[in-house]
Nucleic acid binder design. Sequence first.
DNA 1: AACTCAGTCAACCGCCCTCAG
DNA 2: CCTGAGGGCGGTTGACTGAGT
Length: 373
Amino acid sequence: MGRAPCCDKASVKRGPWSAEEDAKLKDYIEKNGTGGNWIALPQKIGLNRCGKSCRLRWLNYLRPNIKHGGFSEEEDNLICSLYISIGSRWSIIAAQLPGRTDNDIKNYWNTKLKKKLLGRRRQSLLNRSSTTGNANSSNDATSSQALSSSALERLQLHMQLQNLQGPFSFYNNPALWPKVPPLLNEKMTQTLKFLNESPHLLMQPTLSNSSSPKNDQKATTYESSPAASRSTPSDFANLSFSDADFNELVNSMTNCVSSSDCYAPLPDIGVDSIDQLNRGQFLPDPLIQTVPDDSLNYKKSDGSMSQQNQVDEFDCFKDMDSNSRDTLQALWHDDEYNAQSASSWDSASVLLCEGISQDFGLRYSSGYKPTVL
DNA sequence: AACTCAGTCAACCGCCCTCAG
DNA sequence: CCTGAGGGCGGTTGACTGAGT
């Protein structure tokens, strides 16, 4: 069941705002505030606009200290880290970037940042495919086919930052995965198999078959395609890897306290323990962070938090930022994707963010929270 | 100069959540 | 507890712009 529209859309003005309208709205709010009711506001000041439209205009454009464009390297890094950690929760990400609006960040991510990061990896993989003479890869690479979702995108970024390529990397080694439900384990297996077999199919826009006849050009979407299916394990299609799956996986990783009771049983791969794997430099040394409860007390009883609390409590990201900077900058600046630089990425920040993002919290109930990475 | 096309971004849409009555 | 109004938010649209041909 829907709900009644907030205004009569037929009678209110829509589209771009004029300077006069901007001035009216700005003057009124600066003098009187919003009055706590956006719906009634346009009538008060004689604006023939929807209240929601006024709110949006104020928040995204007229509000003082708004910055537009010119994102810095540090902002890029922070946006990327947060996106990997918490997904497309733009308002939370925006709360970490003073003067930036969620809309601005969303647009920036979709139009530039995502391509900047994922495009670099894809290009690198394409280069590798071509040098190894893989005919199928070459064909597929030019087929403009794709498979994607928010979860896959985040998984892909996460993998990139943890050195996907290494045969003993976390993502390629099920023995290192935390204990997760069998179905999720299976999804992980299939998804990663797919990602490794067909990395060239990822994150390329494809024209949707269901594109609107009104505007085909705008029908660019990311979706599974016949060609993608061709390269996909037959059962992959039935195992879609969702945001919930990604969150559960990272939750499991975040909650692991000791390898003995957290990770899946080791298959016979000739190593005795996770520690041995680590000593063998298949993984970075585990990093155990203890996070004082004080820094995590953002959670209200109902799991929500005020806007101000979001800003205050996410201050812990400032530390994370310095951790992530080096690797992200390597990704930013290297002409060629460099597995070595990626492997130096310290994912502590990402997982710490993820833990925090669980908001909103599904956890961190008492004592100190060890985060094994 | 005219046209096409892709990229950008302000604005809109509609769903979900909260809260007051 | 139920209902509806308003706010918040993520996803999407479409006008605009500039590069390429």
